[in-house]
Amino acid sequence: MTALALLTAGCGTPQLSGIQDLPLPGGADLGDRPYEISAEFADVLSLVPQSAVKVNDVAVGRVTRITLAPGSWSAKVTMRINGDVRLPADAYAHLEQSSLLGEKYVQLAPPPRTPRTPKTPKTPHPPKTPVSAAGPLRPGAVIPLSRTNRNPEVEEVLGALSMLLNGGGINQIRTIATELNKAIGGNEPEVASVLKRLDTLVTSLDSNKTDITAALDGVNRLSVTLAVRKQQVGRVLTGLSPGLKVLEQQRGSLLTMLRALGTLSTVAVDTVNKSKDDTIADLKALAPTLKALADSGKALPDSLQVLLTYPFTDEVLRGIKGDYLNLYLHVAAVSGTTVIPPLIPQEPTGGQSAAQLPLPLPLPHPQAGGN
């Protein structure tokens, strides 16, 4: 055995560290260009190195090393695969058992969205698995813990079956069924109504999940803001304490005021009810006045403008030239009016002053001029 190890080391192959590194007879053909991949398992059970690695139940490789993954409690299984086998980058690794008491092996499979090829009999040439859109599984890749699992052990199945057959599970199921029959018996319509309303509630919650998420995010932001301003909120609450004490002291007065407001509202409602007819009559009487004001249109504001600016309205301002006001009057005497000749003012004599001269007679009224 030592001579064989030295001979293989001298030929350029990896040096054997023990008998466990020797390939088992009848194992998978790795070909000339094998590559290594790894997979993380939560529990490898009794899997050992040199165990088979299969695709569609056809051996395509073997397990070379089982170690503890660094920084975790999961097991890292290193496998060497035939170079002609192409696996998808998102492949799954399952830990399975060849029979009830058979050996453990690793089954590699494409993801569920990729159709699996039908099982084929074991042939010297391993099958080629379809490559998904994620690309091929490259050498050195690691299948994460989320894409690995294992089949239940025989001991686990027998233990569960024992508990079920010994009355544990059956008695519990029977008790549950009996109690459900007692609760639902005679209340089938009510239960159906509750289920329908529950379905409506769940549907409504599902359709409004975006708004619910936004509301929860808003509550989260509010809680964060309150946590940041905890001291300010504490000071505000401390400052509210004296005010609350004053309100507590004046509680009787506040209640009296509220009762008085209630009485006032009752009187006000009664007054409005009693004066309803008079109010309606007054409003109807105002209708013609309001209609006339509405019909006046622009005339009313224009007349108010003239009233407030009399005698210098906007029309008068057009005749003002500089600092003087020019007034143009067209006077026509009524037919039959006697026109008095123009008055020539008398010069004051030596003994008279201008104040002592006789005043001119006023013009007669146009209607009295014909008499």
Rank of each mutant, 00 (worst) to 15 (best):
V334F: 02
E188C: 04
S204K: 11
P345H: 07
V85Q: 01
L16N: 08
D206W: 06
E347S: 14
G319H: 09
D57V: 01
Q231Y: 02
K284C: 05
S162V: 03
T337S: 06
Y310M: 13
S162P: 01
P152W: 00
G297H: 04
G186W: 05
S74M: 06
L95E: 02
V202P: 02
L6G: 08
L195H: 11
E155Q: 07
A39G: 12
I280T: 15
V60W: 00
L247F: 09
L247H: 02
P348I: 05
A292R: 09
A285Q: 04
R86K: 15
N149V: 01
Y324M: 11
P362E: 10
S204M: 07
K298T: 15
F41W: 10
S303Y: 08
G252C: 06
T279G: 03
P362S: 09
Q172P: 00
L7R: 07
D278G: 03
I66Q: 02
K104E: 00
D302G: 11
Q367K: 06
L6D: 07
M79L: 13
L329Q: 05
R33Y: 05
G350T: 03
R33S: 13
T123R: 12
A3C: 08
L195Y: 04
S193E: 15
L205F: 07
Q172K: 07
I170Q: 09
S335W: 00
I19C: 06
P111M: 12
P348K: 12
P301H: 05
A192R: 12
V269T: 15
Q352C: 10
K291A: 15
Y105R: 00
P126L: 10
I212M: 13
V60S: 01
S275C: 09
P118T: 10
K291E: 08
G168L: 04
A160V: 05
G243W: 03
E248K: 09
D211G: 11
A294I: 01
S223F: 04
Q50M: 01
A287S: 11
A285W: 02
A368Q: 10
G12S: 13
K284D: 15
T225R: 10
V306Y: 08
A354H: 02
I66T: 02
F41D: 03
G319D: 14
T148P: 01
T148Y: 00
V202E: 12
R318H: 07
L7G: 13
L87Q: 06
R138V: 12
L87V: 13
I280L: 15
Q346V: 12
K274T: 13
T349M: 06
G31L: 02
T2R: 04
Y35D: 07
T266V: 11
K274W: 03
V55Q: 01
Q352P: 02
V154W: 03
I320M: 15
L286D: 08
T338S: 13
R113D: 11
L307G: 10
L240H: 03
